[in-house]
Design a protein around this nucleic acid. Structure first.
Lengths: 321, 321
DNA sequence: TAGGGGGCAGACAACGTTGTCAAGGCGGCT
DNA sequence: AGCCGCCTTGACAACGTTGTCTGCCCCCTA
């Protein structure tokens, strides 16, 4: 910038004004400055600007794993909103590890992100307190923080979706419905299990429940265990997208009624098509990002807790007798 | 930092030394400083550090679309390498639009990223020249830049993979094999078509080729056109993952031999399983990122052009008669 | 013609770090 | 005892911007 100034024969500040399109520069001078900028191939040093102004125009996003379609859909939506606000996006995958989540968040904070969207992996976010009090805006998506930390959240209707799925299966004559889901320490898994249990009421049987990481062997073993009981399941409800796929693999073609939480590509191409309770990850991302930017614009209302509806899509597997 | 210094009763520079774990600070002093840091909840301002040192410890990644599994797999691998080098990752999706690709790259440059990994959408990268000459390291992944710009590239063996697929189909008795792929302006599509043509030799017939964006209607129309000819195809080769899925939808269960480029989740669960030429997006991401960091460490050898092998995985659809 | 006001330009400090250099104190060696 | 060198610490400038304040010039009005 200094070089541009001397090349154009003006003061540093004048170049700054031109670059920032501030008023009060004579058009002819501005033209001269722009010419010098082009000639020298100058581009503003954003770090210095950030240092001086205090705003980074950068948003941080912490998710479980970009390679998971749920998260990548969410990511893309967040990215679009962020770009629309002339900001950039720092993304990090926690791999669902609380320690890594925290490291990422803290790294983002030292980079002075203006705002943060987090899909939490852990359940202790006291480490956020200082930064929240310092005014950094944080929105939780997909899962809330632990009780006691009242911040903006954008969640899907997990329990409601699970209830819907179970009622659908009950409506097709099933009374013995198994639940295959993730570790109950994961909020969404716990909620979906809660909805499952609520919808089943007196039909609930803990032997028909398997909650653990979705490994093929594990799922296969649990299914075998369930099928070996005196009253085996006639229908399955799987607690998330990866789980549904794993379950399909474990079933190896064995026909049984199945409803899965989360839609996934090709669910319609399988035979039978897989009936799912679909949530919309990009909607969630968009809503979370827009909420964040509203906060950044100065909205200081009480924390919002947005719940997004989910939708049951019958495709065949949930309608088997 | 100033506050920490006065709280600990030492000079600014001493705090800086402690924070950066530089040698030459008395353990007792360091302890006092660390106590003050904890008490005040201080965290280093990375922007100022960047400004002073000139290195941002940030890498930029420009891809087509995070929501596409190929790119998100690549992203995740890049992210892991980047985190391993204590850097952060700025990600942007070009949506395959050259203009947006350029905007993203230039935004990343004004943010002074140390290095850049690009999956190019456009075919004019002269705009990179100044920055390349200024020493910023850039690696192209998945697709090369236009001829004339000799930079590091990491590509898959697109033509070879296509040849392999076609030879596989020829080996199963097919002589009439159609190609369904993306716009030939996209490098990978053009290369795969090249391999297809080379493997077919005299059997090549332009009427059996459809290259256009993968819309369901378009693919369906082209398939109908091909099937309506006097010598309809007995096998299909689809030019990328999304294309394969679209083709499967367009076929609506009609059995015909099919090999697709790119593996995809559930390819094994369809009946018949889908035979594919698989590339490994995370391998590509890892290799590109590692090459980039080698450059950042000062490796100044001539540009490297890495080609990653692909692998044919028979699953049933490619072995139909 | 004198005074006032608006348009334009520049000087300077500050943002929070880090690299360079210099200085003080202390122990060991001659 | 005097000198040297090491260990520890600090002062200061610089990185490239931007916000504030000041100054100049010209035109308009009384």
């Amino acid at each position: 910038m200094k070089d541009v100034a001397s090349a154009a024969g003006v003061a540093l500040k004048t170049v700054s004004r031109v670059v920032n399109e501030e008023p009060g520069v004579h058009p002819a001078t501005a033209e001269r400055v722009r010419a010098a900028i082009d000639r020298l191939g100058y581009s503003r040093n954003e770090s210095a600007r950030v240092l001086r102004r205090g705003r980074t125009a950068t948003i941080g996003l912490v998710i479980g794993d970009v390679a998971d379609p749920f998260y990548s859909g969410l990511s893309r939506a967040v990215e679009d909103v962020v770009i629309g606000h002339e900001c950039l996006l720092l993304t990090g995958s926690s791999g669902e590890e609380p320690v890594r989540e925290r490291e990422l968040v803290e790294t983002f904070f030292t980079r002075r992100v203006d705002g943060l969207i987090v899909v939490p992996a852990g359940d202790d976010h006291t480490y956020l307190r200082p930064e929240l009090e310092a005014g950094t805006k944080v929105v939780f998506a997909d899962r809330p923080p632990e009780a006691g930390l009242d911040v903006d959240t954008v969640l899907a209707d997990n329990a409601g979706g699970a209830e819907q799925a179970i009622r659908h299966l009950l409506g097709h004559g099933h009374h013995r419905i198994a639940f295959l889901g993730d570790d109950p320490a994961i909020y969404t898994a716990a909620e979906r299990h809660r909805g499952y249990r609520a919808a089943l009421g007196g039909l609930y049987d803990p032997r028909m429940v398997s909650m653990r990481p979705p490994t093929l062997e594990g799922v296969r073993a649990d299914l075998n265990r369930m099928f070996a009981t005196d009253r085996p399941p006639t229908a399955l409800f799987s607690g998330n997208g990866r789980y549904t796929v794993t379950t399909l693999r474990a079933l190896a073609g064995r026909p049984i009624a199945l409803v899965g939480f989360d839609d996934f590509e090709l669910s319609d191409l399988l035979r039978p098509g897989v009936t799912v309770v679909a949530q919309d990850p990009s909607w969630m991302g968009r809503v979370a990002a827009e909420l964040l930017f509203r906060r950044l614009r100065g909205d200081v209302g009480p924390p919002e807790h947005i719940q997004l509806p989910v939708r049951l899509i019958p495709r065949g597997s949930g309608e088997l007798p």
